[in-house]
Design a protein around this nucleic acid. Structure first.
Lengths: 112, 112
DNA sequence: CAATCATACAACCGAATGGTTGCATGTAAA
DNA sequence: TTTACATGCAACCATTCGGTTGTATGATTG
């Protein structure tokens, strides 16, 4: 039922669970960069960087557009907002329950 | 230099990149639950759930307090806020750069 | 102390991850 | 059409991950 949401969350968090990929997202935020330009700044092979971009693409965090020979990667802000709202919900649950416990402790338990 | 922050981000995102662990965080938000109580609701061994809790603990998302025989797990809200501010920064960079590009496109490029 | 319940931890297993190299394809330029 | 550059992809390798079972430790109860 909600398996798809879980799948998306899995992919998003996992995509961001690598510092190289987080750095890539930062660098392609707004303005785009070709895969080669991206790869130039990392101490690993081009293929490794290309695979990182592919992971981000599969998670929806990055899209690519062809410009001549190059494939320009751009960050998508939508999925970032998705994650943030997931985390906000987690925090809300935390706050709600603490509030409920506070209510109990402060003697508001008039109706069980 | 900022390797520690990267380590923390790695651990946090990776800890949340598993639906069982996200569910555990939700369930121990505010009120605590023993590891056994947690494990009762998942279709996997007690040891597997215990390892998930350990991962969350290492990432700082969960702490445990002994109460009698039981070890009660509680969610910590601080790390959640840490992640949210990281994502907010990412989004801010996105917005900043788009703004800069918008400025260029709208003809504000007086001082190249 | 003995018995029991809750937890921790080690050893193992198959699958996924993050890296490598090498090769194939696509696009632009000569 | 050849040449060169940018990208994609497959095969391989070491390590990590998410699960298992089994055993050891800790705290409570009889």
């Amino acid at each position: 039922m909600k398996g798809l949401l879980d799948d998306e969350a899995d992919a998003l968090f996992q995509a961001l669970a690598d510092r190289t990929r987080r750095d890539i997202v930062r660098r392609v935020a707004g303005e785009g960069l070709s895969v080669t330009d991206l790869a130039a700044d990392y101490d690993m092979s081009f293929a490794a960087v290309q695979k990182h971009v592919a992971v981000l693409e599969r998670a929806g965090l990055v899209t690519k557009r062809r410009v001549g020979k190059q494939q320009i990667a751009h960050a998508e802000v939508g999925p970032l907002r998705t994650i943030r709202s997931m985390l906000a919900e987690l925090e809300d649950q935390w706050v709600d329950r603490v509030q409920r416990i506070d209510d109990l402790l402060s003697g508001d338990e008039q109706a069980g």
